[in-house]
Write a protein that binds this DNA or RNA. Structure first.
Lengths: 223, 223, 223, 223
DNA sequence: AATGAATGAGGTTTCATTCAT
DNA sequence: AATGAATGAAACCTCATTCAT
């Protein structure tokens, strides 16, 4: 109790501060145009100091991605219930996405940073199982499981091939995020964008739902 | 009469050569990793000469985008018939996309380059009507028109709001293309990717089609 | 005839200037403490300009080494005659070394730079024949041949094992050069050093000569 | 009574530990590539703590050199007997060198570190008598004395000028050590290198021995 | 019209050293 | 006595753009 803990805490706080600043700058200017120098300035630190906390730029970005991805997966996991049908689960997935986005825009960073780390994803992931980005694999698996369940319980269209459709969903979600990430910061987090995302996700819901499903699950309106 | 024209023609040919080379390099290596030096080498020209034909790198990329976008829009326009229902028209849109991709991968360049140019798209377009990228607006209009028609003729779901869904479609199409554009060239143009795109587009078709539509139009299989 | 040639010549001159400046700086400060920035300043060029002439620092150093080594080997080759006994040839080798050093100090650069390029030499050379530094291999071969001849013609001690002794000679010659290269420039090229080198080389001559050799060949005094 | 002494002792122990670790790291990776950070880690100390024991990196290296040099000189001194002829003494010098190298490679550190410290050696020593590196002067004196004795007792060639030849011997010994120090650790301490060193030293022995000397002293084979 | 040499600001990373605690 | 966070200068390299010829 005392000095050591305080120092440790302060160190973690500084780390967190750097990550936070990096997130902010990435959100503002895009991954590619954030330099270590800018980040250092924003943190009121020297460039060298950043390397006390992170081995290199890639490691820093990786951490940002891992945090965001874990948070997202955790968030989704919490919201999906065992008794959900597949369609309900997908519905909750999209809702979570929208909620999280509305709250913190963190999901924006999520895939945007990933593309700076593993541009070949999601195709290469199939080739080698030793995946450098476990979160995306986890995510893909989660979605594929949900889809399989939905096909089994009849809430999703029998034509849905879980693995393939999971890929499509990841791509769509990622694509949106990249589009948003490129927006200047003052245009983000706007009702307009939320509407856009909702529209897109509803198309997907309808595109994979079975004919006999509960129509209430095809809307994402926050009623 | 003659000398001037010849010079003019030669100049245009040179421009076209540069653009062609740029396209090729971008397809091979991705937009970001093509330098003016590499382009100049590939053209067997000096770096300085490129600046005789284009004000700067951005202008060059813009032209590539404009050409590709126009070609794509033209291609789609040719294939859509006045007597098509809205759903048929969307079906042809996706088919065109897949065909073009199978043929030349040019659509890859299309949106990939755009994002280096106008990252704020597609949202900013709505804000100011003086659009720097008319082709995207044209494209958006084309799709919106098709959608409106489809709603009117009953082939599309009445819940479809043409403008909004047009945006979604653009984003989805663009997102896929970006994912593909990042792939190393040896992984592109593969059956796997075509399947992926088909899967995604079929989800969209089903997501916007009306209940009573011709089920044959929900498949993109090259029957 | 004219513009092209002149430009070509000027370009080569600039290259030569850079190499010359690099040599000078290396001689003054030692290989390790010459930075591309310093070199650029000395040449009154920008850092970037250096990279127009050389791919990277290593390539630049390699060229310096290759030039010096070739010059040295050529110089030695010219002076050794077919009718020389082995001992005479070694004598000429050392004389050449001293002469070249007295003239231009280039030999200083020779091995000094080599060590920045291929620190594992001369041992690794034996392992893989695909040698990155052909000049050193050539040099080694030349010396070994001379030694073998000397053993055969009775001018060298029969205990001399050509390959092994060739290595020793290279090491000794290289060691001296490194010691000299580290000297501040104002102490170099001094009679003192020449005497030192002469003493060392004479020890070697006596160490490998046969008992029955011409005693006149054991002195390097410039009589 | 004791606290002060204990502290003092502990301080010295810590110093010794640091020096030991430094030696080990230098042997493994070469002088230039050992950073203060690495050293601190290896000692399980903070970087700052190193500066409590040594003014700066150079001072630390200097101490390593001083210790190694003293040890070497002591080792040689112990082995040379008053009744030895000059040639016998030189023979013992080389044998000691080979033995020490075979045992611990410490001699590697010896001159390798020196060159990071006093690159101007051995020439500067002559210029100003206030020598920053007393051990090298001691060494030089020792060798010169041996040589003088050898000339006097007829075991060495009368042409040997003690001071000058002492320099040559230092340079040769140093040059070999530098070549070895640059080798990756897994190539060091190998029979091949021992052979190489033996060959070189034998050349020197033969180069300075008198015609009438005991031929048995011209071999360093471990008979 | 074309060249291509040159620039200059930018990028990431390393490291000896200092200093408040 | 010891820490370890922080610095700041230095390293190598890249690239869009300009400009005299």
């Amino acid at each position: 109790m005392g000095i050591y803990e305080r120092k440790e805490r302060e160190k973690n706080e500084r780390r967190a501060l750097i990550l936070d600043m990096a997130r902010r700058l990435i959100l503002e200017r895009g991954v590619d145009s954030v330099s270590m120098q800018e980040l250092a300035n924003a943190c009121e630190l020297s460039k060298g100091a950043l390397y006390l906390y992170f081995d290199n730029k890639e490691a820093l970005l990786a951490e940002i991605f891992h945090e965001a991805a874990s948070a997202f997966i955790g968030y989704v996991h919490e919201r999906i219930r065992p008794e959900d049908t597949g369609l309900q689960a997908i519905h909750r997935l999209w809702s979570s996405y929208l909620e999280l986005f509305g709250q913190s825009s963190d999901v924006i960073v999520l895939f945007g940073v990933k593309n700076a780390l593993a541009p070949e994803y999601p195709w290469k992931a199939e080739a080698d199982s030793g995946d450098a980005i476990p979160e995306t694999a986890a995510m893909l698996g989660l979605i594929a499981d949900i889809l399989a369940k939905g096909v089994a319980d009849g809430s999703l269209d029998p034509a849905v091939v879980p693995d393939r459709v999971a890929h499509s969903i990841m791509m769509i979600a990622g694509g949106i995020v990249e589009n948003i990430a490129r927006l200047p910061v003052h245009m983000r987090n706007h009702t307009l964008i939320l509407e856009e995302m909702k529209t897109t996700f509803e198309i997907v819901l309808r595109g994979i739902a079975s004919r006999t499903c509960d129509p209430g699950l095809l809307n994402l309106s926050g009623e």
